[in-house]
Amino acid sequence: MKAKTSPEGVDALKQITAIVSDAVNNYMTTLQAITPVKDYLQIATSIKERFGDDPSATAQAMIKHIFDPELMMSSVKSLEEISSAAVKRMQADQSTALSTLKDTSDSYFKSITEAKTPEAWKSVQVESMVAFYKDFKDITEEQMNTVNAIYVGSKSWMESTVASYCAK
């Protein structure tokens, strides 16, 4: 005999499927956007345009000023700011994640204690499950954005450091 699924259950399942499918799509989107060969060619062209055709000239300019205290201080200070911003953002993400999950849990426990009938109890279970899935997806996406910002930021810092040594 087949077990019957309640309309709330079917609806919740649909919502969860939509959330998971959206998350998978976003993940696939990110993966497909990474095109190493194409990116390498484009980056190589951009670097050549900004720093010139001769990498040895850039290296020489860097070596010449590598111990310049002013440049060193400035680039270390900049890196410190970036690191500090990265830590703050990761902490903020974590704090948002915890408070979101706490809110959802609180709301779940409040609703479950107020549920007077088995139907109401079931409905709370279903709604909470959907809410948890959605929260998890949002939290993961936010953390992925932060990782991207840190990765891009560190490479940008590297470039600005090289540029400042070359410009001296």
């Binding site: 670097i47 990265a86 910002a149 930021g153 490479k155 940008s156």
Partner: peptide
């Protein structure tokens, strides 16, 4: 930033950069 691809800059430096 030439060390990043256009897409990396678009989604990182041009949206919500660290500093």
């Amino acid at each position: 930033w030439s060390f990043n691809s256009y897409l990396q800059n678009a989604t990182g430096a041009c949206m919500n950069p660290l500093t």
